[in-house]
Design a protein around this nucleic acid. Structure first.
Lengths: 238, 238
DNA sequence: GCCTGTATAATTGTATACAATTAATGTGAC
DNA sequence: GTCACATTAATTGTATACAATTATACAGGC
């Protein structure tokens, strides 16, 4: 029938999105696609997700769609009613606030454990990141700073040596990805943010677990405050 | 072919497990089946999960198996290597310890929010649960106490009015389900546990958020200590 | 022996076919 | 008009078929 055409679509899709991944599968592609669409607001809460429609839209069969939906269901991004369908649940502003509160605790815990358990290579990488942060903060390069921020926290997740905690934080971070990217684009905040990162690094280096936890918790708490003032400004825009 | 036989198996399965659920689907059944098998230690870390083998074992096709595996993957219970297969990751003792530490923070947060936000019906239910706990503690009915404990925490998850926090805690609780059930079966602990629950309830009733948080965090922290002493005793048994 | 390449089998990945359930559409009674 | 009920369409649930990939086994060369 139209297998060739569909194959072509699939190929170009994979090239566009999976350039950095050596291995992939359709369900993971679909999962990321739908999740991003929900987190970006393209699929809105209440929207129905029809399998065949998604399959057509993405040029794949229903099987990988269903696998992805099952994962989204577990993440709480959609709600599935058996034999009826799935609707987008989405992430409300209240959810984002809650996530930041939760993160401030869990990132604090991660910093505490990292201070106790971090090894030399990770400590060295953290130092390097902080140096780069200083450089790009002066340059006002927000794109680089956002990436460095992700790396900074990622190294700490790694260094805390807890599969469970890392897993939780990775997920929470994805939920607030969009909010986070905005938050760092404020010049003043970038400067403040650098100082906070530096202090956290120093506390970890000194193996001061309590201090690292406190500083990290405050760091995240401040991020949400900043986010709020940011939203008040651009209230009419969105 | 052997469709009739397979249908029969499926029917009896659904009756056995889904008696409390009005609607179900095979993937959720498979998900629960495999998750329990992993959490109970029947499937051990490193074991390969072969789709066809599971499909035969459960008398269903590969489709619901795959959907369930994708969910287990997201939960971190299995690790999937594309085109190769999935292996059981499992929950180590370290994981359980970490979960209890994380829970002590998050349950504390839930108690704090619950103290601020709980409504009358939930408060009333909490009071009722505490009364029943007193009753069954005197009777040493551990089965009832375990259920009441689940209900107590469940009501607080509900009362904290945070979809995200409730979701996280529900998941964490499932991970330590087995450990938790053992923990309450120690008579002394049951008594202590009752007093802790009562104090937490009173703090929430008095709308004392800080106190509720502190008491709850200590309650969970004590549970892990108790669990450790329990394991030292039965070290040779398992 | 052991390495290497090749054929075969096992397994995963994806698409499609069919069944079951739910939503919608329309028709007749009143 | 509208309510009840039957009929059809749309959608989800499950199983199976086929393709692609990876593991296994085995033969020949060195």
């Amino acid at each position: 029938m139209e297998n060739f055409e569909e194959n072509r679509v699939a190929k170009s899709r994979s090239l566009a999105k999976m350039q950095s991944l050596e291995r992939y599968s359709l369900h993971s592609y679909v999962f990321n696609y739908i999740r991003d669409a929900i987190l970006n607001g393209r699929y809105k809460p209440g929207d129905a997700l029809v399998e065949t429609r998604l399959a057509d839209e993405l040029g794949v069969s229903r099987t990988p769609i269903r696998e992805a939906i099952r994962q989204l269901e577990l993440e709480g991004l959609v709600i599935s009613i058996p034999n009826k369908g799935v609707v987008v649940s989405g992430v409300s502003q209240q959810d984002i606030d809650d996530i930041y509160t939760i993160r401030s605790m869990l990132e604090g815990l991660a910093a505490r454990w990292a201070a106790q358990r971090i090894d030399e290579p990770n400590l060295k990488e953290l130092e390097e990141i902080v140096e780069l942060m200083e450089y790009y903060t002066k340059k006002n390069d927000f794109e680089q700073l956002t990436q460095l921020d992700t790396r900074f926290h990622g190294v700490i997740y790694e260094a805390c040596a807890s599969k469970v905690l890392k897993h939780l934080l990775d997920n929470l971070l994805r939920y607030v990805e969009r909010a986070r990217r905005g938050s760092l684009k404020v010049p003043m905040r970038a400067n403040q943010s650098f100082n906070e990162h530096k202090s956290i690094f120093e506390a970890i280096m000194k193996r001061n677990a309590a201090e690292a936890e406190r500083l990290m918790a405050e760091h995240i708490a401040r991020a949400i405050l900043n986010l709020h003032s940011l939203m008040e400004q651009s209230e009419e825009r969105d």
